[in-house]
Simulated scan of single mutants.
Amino acid sequence: MDAFYASVEQRDFPEYRGKPLVVGGLPEGRGGVVATASYEARKFGIRSAMPSRQALKLCPHAIFVRPRFAAYKEVSQKIREIFSRYTDLIEPLSLDEAYLDVTNDKLNIGSAIDIAQQIKQAIKDELNLTASAGVSVNKFVAKIASDIKKPDGLTFIGPSSIEAFMENLPVEKFYGVGRVTAEKMRKQGLFTGADLKKLSEDAMIAQFGKAGAFYYRIVRGIDDRQVQPHRETKSIGAEDTFAYDLTSLEEMNAELDKIAKTVHDRLLRYQLKGRTITLKIKYSDFRQITRSQSLPSCIDDLDIILITSKNLLAATDIENSKIRLLGITVSNFSPAENRKKPKNDQLSLFGY
C-alpha cells in the first residue's frame, strides 16, 4: 500500500488531504517516532522511524496524528478479501505488504500483469486507496519492482530483464540490505549489483556471513522461496512507547496491566498457548534489555502472564531508571498438531 496509515487518515478526514501528514508519536514532550508520512510530508525529507521532533523541524507546518490501528486493520481485511478473489496463495509480509502467487489463476485472466492491474483498480474503486504492485517470476524481484513507481505504480520485470535489472540496482535498494550493510558494501567498493556479482559465493559468505549466500543468489535473480499462505506464528506480543518516561514501579506495573491484556486477547483470538514469557524494556537512553521465563506448561492465562511479567520487571535494576518502552511476548507454543485453527485471520496484517 502507498503510505498506508497516512492514506487511510487522508481518506477518512478530508482536512488532511493535500497536506503534509505524519502518523506516529507526537513531537510534544519527549516525542515519539514517525510510523508513516504522507507523500506531501515526504517531500520535506520526513521518513518512517524518524524522531517526530526531527520531522517537525523539517516541516514545521506538518500535521501529527496518532495511529488508529483498528481502522488500518479493518482496511487490511478488506484488501485481503480483494486478493482472495484472484488467488488463495497470499503471504502477508507486514502491515501493508503481501506476496501473491497467481500461477493458479482463479478467474482465468491469463496474465499476472492484468491481475495486478485489476487488484489495484478494485482497491481504488472500493476503498479509495492506491497500491503499487511489482510483477515478476520470484518474490525478491517482485518486491523490488513494487517500490519502483510508487505511488500507484505497476512494474513488470520479465525473465529476460532480471539480470540486467539486478546489475544496475544500487546495493541499498536490495531488499534485506539495511543501512549498516549497505554502508559496509560501499566502503568495500560495492555500489551496485554488478559489483556484488564479481564476488564468489565464498567471498560473499566470508564478508557478510550467512546472508552472503543469499546475496550471491539474488543478485543473479535467483530466489526459489515459495509463497507461504500459512506461515507458523512463532510468538505473540505487544509493546508500547510512552509519551513520557516512566520512573516509578507503580507506573510501570500499570502499563504492564494494559499490555498483558492485549497479549492475552491475541492469544485467545488465535487459540494459542505458550511456555515462555519475555519482557522487553527500553530505557530513556535507548538501551534495551529483555528478560524471559519459561513455565512448566503452556498457558494463555492473563494472571500468569501479568504476574510473570511484573516479577521479571522487579528482578531488573529499575531503581532510578527512566523507561520509555515496555513490551510482553509469549512464545514457545504448544506443538502445532495440538493447536486449533486461528479465528478470523492471521496476526500479521497485510497490504499490497
Rank of each mutant, 00 (worst) to 15 (best):
A254H: 11
D285E: 00
K210R: 14
I218A: 02
I259A: 09
R220C: 01
K273D: 13
V227P: 09
I236Y: 10
A203E: 15
T241R: 00
E250G: 00
E251N: 01
A206G: 08
E251S: 04
E201Q: 14
A238G: 05
R291W: 07
S292P: 04
L246I: 00
Y283I: 03
L268H: 13
K280R: 07
L279N: 02
T233C: 15
E232R: 13
I218M: 08
S248I: 09
R266K: 13
L272Q: 12
R225Y: 04
A260Q: 10
L268M: 07
R217K: 15
V227L: 08
Y270G: 09
I281A: 03
L268I: 12
L246M: 12
K210Y: 08
G209Q: 12
D265N: 14
E232W: 06
D265W: 02
D202E: 11
R275V: 06
E201G: 07
D265P: 08
N253G: 00
P229M: 10
A260M: 10
D202N: 10
K280W: 07
K280L: 09
D245N: 12
D240K: 15
H264N: 11
Q226L: 13
I281R: 02
S200R: 14
A203F: 10
L279A: 05
V219C: 09
A211Y: 12
I289W: 05
I218V: 15
H230Q: 14
T233W: 08
F214P: 02
D223Q: 04
S235G: 12
Y270F: 10
A238H: 12
Y215S: 10
K273S: 15
Q271H: 15
D265Q: 15
L246V: 02
M204K: 03
V227S: 07
T262E: 14
A213H: 09
I222E: 12
K234V: 05
R266G: 05
D257C: 05
R225K: 11
I236L: 15
S248C: 08
